[in-house]
Design a protein around this nucleic acid. Structure first.
Lengths: 219, 219
DNA sequence: GTCAACTTTTTTGTATACAAGAACGCCGGG
DNA sequence: CCCGGCGTTCTTGTATACAAAAAAGTTGAC
């Protein structure tokens, strides 16, 4: 076998946590999961250890593993960091981006525009993700790219639903145009500011959404 | 037992990787390590999985675990990200820092100054770490603080030796003064720039050092 | 009827056992 | 003398077994 079962299991669990199949706070029963994956508890526990290290799962001694649930404060903090990472990627990319990558960005933006016109949030989301991914890559810093992608991925379940907010897609689209313009001009400061606004607003929107839905989600 | 053995082992191994007892590229023999820690291979492997997740160890299927060795490119990338994280912490701290924390910073700086005068790099390093740690904390963002601390810790072995470079301590001290002044003034931009220079220079110095010592450390 | 202490049961944490693949050495051929 | 094929040995990956701790259920007293 090329890959460890533990790795496969880890990715599978990660996916299920991200997509909500395993909801926050859910207890991860070792024997049941092991049975589900058709392995013994050993590789499953190894996977759990890994997930715990990367903060997705909480391991309470003698009590078991739980999907880590993020409180509002921690979530807001993560959105803030996300915005800053995007800013850094954008600033570096403004200096380092290639002409070919600019073309890719234009193409991604074109898809986004089509999605806006079609009123298709799913398609917009996909295009948006592509757009940002290109910027991460063009930061020219692989480590930064990896960290940014990781956090992006982690925040995914909390970001997705916002696109349904009225007018958000169109506004986001305009912001993309501004970001693209800044990158084309190689203007670091402008790219930074455009990105900060574009991403920071997600955190804010998220909190509007959350506080309107759950009066007191404090833990 | 309150804590998992795997956790204890993970921390212990982490420590040994950071302080160089386990050099980069070293193979981590499971049975030997298990014997050394007085446990079986099971908890040891769990610890290894965790370390692999956080990027300290590389797990090659069917070949074993190795202390991940960072190439020059990756290292430079990490220094770049470190600088940016410090900048973000500083910028946020400029807005959010408390008077008490400013006092702490002044105290840390006083210790640094004493260390400069005494020509004691170890003491300076300790003071410097304290100084930066306070800024991380005063960013008011616990997640950011954690991530920044983690990277700081990870780069520790590569940062330490530079203080011996002629004049570096004195220069660093001056930079600290500038950073403190910016934070006292609540000047975000100034704090950001002062910190960026202060930290970015470490990456540069590191590369001067490295390229002068090892002509071709490429892998 | 409620609460508390005890017992049973489940579940975690660790050790050990076993199977499969990789490193190593050995032997024969060129 | 060097090199390639083969078997041995060592190491990893996984399963299973067992011990200890927590959870759940039960019984008895008040």
């Amino acid at each position: 076998m090329q890959e460890r079962r533990a790795d496969i299991i880890a990715r599978e669990l990660e996916e299920r946590i991200f997509d909500g199949t395993l909801p926050a706070g859910a207890r991860l029963d070792e024997v049941r999961l092991a049975e589900h994956f058709g392995v013994s508890r050993t590789p499953l526990r190894e996977a759990l250890q890994g997930l715990a290290r990367s903060g997705l799962v909480e391991l309470v001694p003698r009590r078991g593993a739980f999907v880590r649930k993020l409180g509002p404060v921690e979530l807001m903090e993560m959105f803030e960091v996300m915005a800053e990472l995007e800013v850094v990627c954008g600033r570096l990319a403004a200096k380092r981006i290639s002409e070919a990558a600019l073309d890719e960005l234009r193409a991604a933006n074109a898809r986004c525009r089509a999605a806006v016109e079609a009123g298709d949030p799913e398609a917009y989301y996909a295009g948006n993700e592509r757009f940002h991914g290109i910027i991460y890559r063009e930061s020219g810093n692989g480590f930064l790219e990896g960290e940014t992608r990781a956090l992006h991925r982690r925040l995914k379940p909390f970001r997705r639903r916002q696109l349904r907010l009225r007018g958000r897609m169109a506004q986001s689209m305009q912001e993309h145009e501004a970001i693209l313009a800044a990158l084309e001009a190689g203007d670091e400061a402008m790219a930074a500011e455009a990105l900060r606004g574009h991403v920071a607003i997600q955190g804010e929107k998220f909190f509007c959404l959350m506080s309107s839905l759950k009066p007191a989600a404090a833990e």
